[in-house]
Simulated scan of single mutants.
Amino acid sequence: MDVRAADVFADVAAVLGPKKETSSNCFCLSYRIGSTENQALRGPERFERVRGLCAEDPPPGVLAYDGAEPVGWAAIHPRADTTFATNRRIPHVEGHEDPWSLWCVRVRPGHRKQGISHQLVAGAVEFARVNGATVVEAYPVDNRGEKVDLTMAYVGTRALFERAGFEYVMDTTSVLNGFTRVLMRYTT
């Protein structure tokens, strides 16, 4: 398994994109851009916005590859460039002015239960470190071993991030699928 920068739009679209370009699914934009722009973008405009993000330096995240096939995605970017910068439910923690946020981990159907999420988290942390991050934050649910609805599992679990060396900082007031999201940090 190889994890590398998500700078190839076609590969990002293969993991995150809808089957039809007219669809207006998330495409991992909901925390990356402001809600006004996110709600206004429809169909092909969403594709073009993500294509533009893939061309930026740094791109919007990392992809996991099984050979040449993209099989997983992790969204990671400086918190200041995301909606987490102003999110009241997931507070800014004093002491680290420029953390990076890791907020979405997705593995394609047919490739799950193979440890790819763990590799994506490790690859995302390394990507952030190489791009100057000293701290990476994640905001997973603390599900205490209970099942998380697959549509909400993109944030990851506390256990996933603990296994990757992240440390619990605090509970947040954000709740997803009935579970409290926690703020966790990794010092690179």
Rank of each mutant, 00 (worst) to 15 (best):
E37L: 15
D66I: 06
T22K: 08
E56N: 08
D66T: 10
R79T: 13
G72N: 10
G95A: 05
L63T: 06
P99K: 07
R46E: 02
S101N: 05
A55I: 06
W103Q: 01
V93H: 14
V71T: 09
Q114R: 15
V107S: 04
S23Y: 13
I116A: 02
N25M: 09
R108K: 15
G52Y: 01
T82M: 08
L120Y: 05
H77I: 01
G67P: 09
Q39R: 15
W73D: 03
A80E: 14
E48H: 11
H92G: 01
A80S: 15
P78E: 10
A40Q: 14
F27E: 04
A64K: 07
A74L: 08
D98K: 13
L41N: 11
G52T: 03
I90C: 12
C28W: 00
H96L: 02
T86M: 04
T82K: 05
V50G: 09
V107T: 12
A55G: 10
S101G: 13
Q39K: 15
E97H: 11
P44V: 15
R49Y: 06
C104L: 01
C28E: 00
G110P: 02
E97I: 04
R49W: 02
H118Y: 02
H96D: 09
C28L: 04
E21S: 13
L29T: 04
E21I: 15
A55E: 14
P58Y: 08
Q119G: 14
P58N: 06
E37W: 10
S30D: 08
Q119L: 10
V50C: 07
G115A: 09
V71F: 07
C104S: 08
I90Y: 01
K113W: 09
E48T: 13
S101C: 07
R106E: 03
A64R: 10
P91A: 12
A68W: 01
I33P: 02
G95F: 08
S30F: 12
R42Y: 03
I90M: 05
A68R: 14
S23V: 00
A74G: 13
S24I: 06
G52D: 08
W73P: 06
G67A: 11
R112A: 01
H77T: 01
A75Q: 01
N38V: 06
W103I: 00
R112K: 12
S30Q: 04
Q39T: 14
Q114W: 04
A80Y: 02
T86D: 13
T82G: 06
Q39L: 12
R106T: 02
I76F: 01
A122V: 00
R106N: 03
N25C: 12
S24D: 10
L41K: 13
S117W: 00
A55D: 09
F47K: 12
S117T: 10
R49Q: 11
F27P: 00
A40K: 15
N38G: 02
N87K: 11
A80N: 05
G115E: 13
E97Q: 11
H111F: 15
G115R: 10
V105E: 09
P78Y: 12
D66A: 14
